[in-house]
Computed example of a mutant assay.
Amino acid sequence: MTATNATPERQERLDGVTVFVEVVRLGGFARAAEHLDLTRSAVGKAMARLEARLAARLFHRTTRVQSLTDDGQIYYEHCLRALSELQAAEAQMQSGRHAVGGRLRVTMPVLFGRHCVAPILLNLAQQHPSLDLYLSFSDRPVDVLAEGFDLAIRSGVLGAESAGLRARKLVVQRKQVCASPAYLAAQGRPQSTAELATHSILLYRRADRINVWQLPDATGRIVDMPLTSRLQLDDLEAIADAATAGLGLAWLPEWLVRDRLRTGKLVSVLDDQPGAARDCYALWPSTPHMPLRLRLAVDALVEHFAEGGE
């Protein structure tokens, strides 16, 4: 029972408890001294300091035997319970590194989390019945450390909010300009980003901030497109629904519109002019030991996206 970062006073207390428990367990100072590789004098001094600190006599001492006083018996029982709890905690920590169990708290963006992350983690939970998952879906900036999350999924440039966290890149999120076949038949298909200004545009707006389209200009340089729209929505799926209904052009993540593109409900345009992409990361608190449940979750996400999943 040691503590490498304990103060001298704290270390003395820990050592005193260890010696006391061994004296009682082995039935005497001499046996405890031999077991702990200490002198009998050192054991006696440790017990004297312990009794002085507790202001109680722990042993009845005779020339032949040491037996516990009533106070000593009570203190011994408390020590055993404390040691048992410490051993249980250590066992749980070890099992967290060698068995897939315990609770994993994960925060992720709402739509990307629902479509791309949650299915992977739920599959992991299905494979490991001892794994408890808490999945939180939120587009607000979550303070991973302050709010006690084990894992966070983030998109975009990592800034100061990632301090104290480790990061692993999962995937590059690309976006696609698309529209319904009916809209393109009625309004024509844009052949360049310059023609977008003549079309109906569906814009994503949240907290009074428009998500500006970032596409190549005539020189091929990625720039913010100065687009306006009478239709502004704060939900990407609603924008996909509006585009499918023929209300205009949308700039949406490929993972969100993949099924609609495959079935022909939406058609991609400007395929030869790819726009800005965003990196997606897994982040977790920086600690010396990474629990196995967390390592497997990160590895499962990395493997899925490496195989082309989104």
Rank of each mutant, 00 (worst) to 15 (best):
A218G: 10
L111E: 15
M1D: 14
G308R: 07
L104A: 07
A243N: 02
D71E: 11
A118F: 00
S268V: 02
Y134F: 10
A277N: 07
M1P: 12
L38A: 12
G102S: 11
D271C: 13
E303V: 11
L202W: 04
L292R: 06
L165S: 10
A42Q: 12
D71I: 01
P285Q: 14
R81S: 10
A48D: 15
G102Q: 08
G16L: 05
A186S: 13
E9F: 07
D132H: 14
C178A: 11
R31V: 00
L296H: 14
P291S: 10
E9D: 12
Y76I: 07
I120A: 02
V267C: 09
L38I: 11
G96V: 01
H289Q: 15
A30P: 00
A185W: 10
L252T: 01
E22G: 00
T4C: 04
G164Y: 08
E237D: 13
C116L: 05
A91K: 06
D279M: 05
Y204C: 02
L236Q: 07
L165V: 12
G16H: 03
V142N: 07
H35R: 14
D71G: 03
A276H: 08
V65H: 14
G264Q: 06
A56E: 08
L247Q: 06
A48H: 15
R49G: 07
